[in-house]
């Protein structure tokens, strides 16, 4: 189960993790900016080692997937259970790593509310089941047998922590990758993975799959371009045909997507365009968005 910086036992950060995160974020950006201005955006990977000390990225995030589960000491048969507990346990255990919502449990077992409540509490005390946070709906009480690790459908996956998407961490990883790509000009997944490992950039180990996920998100943000190396010019360091990434903006790591002709006028962003007619109640003559736009 992934744990966020807020709950990690070895975290050096303060109790207010989010504010610490944003401070760190600034420190990353400031460090990278000072580097690019001092060095004119040089391209060697070694020269970006200034970015690496752990104190620059003390954001800690535990990689849940690599943790070893403690298996329950008792197998269910050796534990004395009431009938209700046994029925409920079987239902929960039968759902394996997907677990089950308490309401569904009641429907399946036809047990009265109070019996279910009591049995669940007892099963938890006996460490046969555990409550997990469902990323789709945190209010739902979701249970899973202790021997299973909750599936991606329940936790949300590697980038989720306690049912929430760890957006702060994702943003920091994105920022760091963007700066690496900008400095290296042309980067590959392997290159970034090597850089991350060598410099211990994060307190968690990122897999190449996770790096790829972040790079794909950066492509979708239109911050970087995925392309095949030509083997010529600035692609010379990457064998021809290999997938590599380049910053979209040539002047800095971050860039804003181009605003098109339609998006720069009120009609392009108007939520009421389908109700707008030349002589209707909503019309270009009476439009409040136009009024605001042409108010010089």
């Amino acid at each position: 189960m992934p744990l966020s910086s807020k709950s990690h036992p070895i975290s050096t950060s303060t109790s207010d993790a989010s504010s610490a995160t944003s401070k760190k974020n600034h420190r990353v950006a400031a460090a990278a900016e000072s580097y690019t201005s001092d060095n004119g955006g040089g391209s060697t990977a070694s020269s970006i080692s200034f970015l690496t000390p752990c104190q620059v990225f003390p954001l800690v995030r535990m990689q849940g997937s690599s943790l070893k589960r403690k298996r329950p000491d008792n197998v269910p048969s050796s534990v004395s259970l009431t009938d209700a507990e046994r029925v409920l346990y079987n239902v929960i255990q039968g759902k394996r790593d997907l677990g089950i919502w308490s309401k569904e449990m009641k429907e399946e077992t036809n047990l009265p509310d109070n019996v279910v409540r009591k049995a669940l509490a007892s099963l938890q005390v006996k460490k046969l089941i555990k409550e997990v946070v469902n990323c789709q709906n945190k209010a739902k009480k979701h249970y899973i047998a202790s021997e299973f690790k909750p599936s991606k459908e329940i936790t949300g996956g590697d980038w989720y922590s306690e049912g929430n998407l760890d957006k702060d961490f994702i943003e920091i990883v994105k920022d760091v990758f963007l700066k690496i790509i900008f400095i290296q000009k042309v980067a590959t997944v392997d290159g970034i993975l090597e850089w991350v490992k060598k410099n211990h950039a994060f307190h968690v180990e990122l897999t190449s799959h996770q790096i790829e996920e972040i790079l794909q998100a950066l492509v979708l943000d239109d911050q970087i371009i995925e392309m095949e190396s030509t083997g010529f010019g600035e692609f010379a360091s990457v064998p021809a045909g290999r997938v590599c990434y380049r910053c979209k903006n040539k002047r800095g790591p971050k860039g804003e997507p181009k605003i098109g002709a339609m998006a720069s006028i009120p009609c392009g962003v108007c939520p009421r365009i389908s109700s707008c007619t030349p002589d209707g109640i909503i019309s270009p003559r009476t439009c409040v968005y136009y009024q605001k736009w042409l108010d010089f």
Binding site: D221, K258, I259, G260, A261, A263
Partner: peptide
Amino acid sequence: DEEVESIVLKRYGRDAYRMFRL
């Protein structure tokens, strides 16, 4: 695509923009 995506970004926000591009 760039023109349509820019409408999506302005009208529906960054998350929608990413989803639409995907």
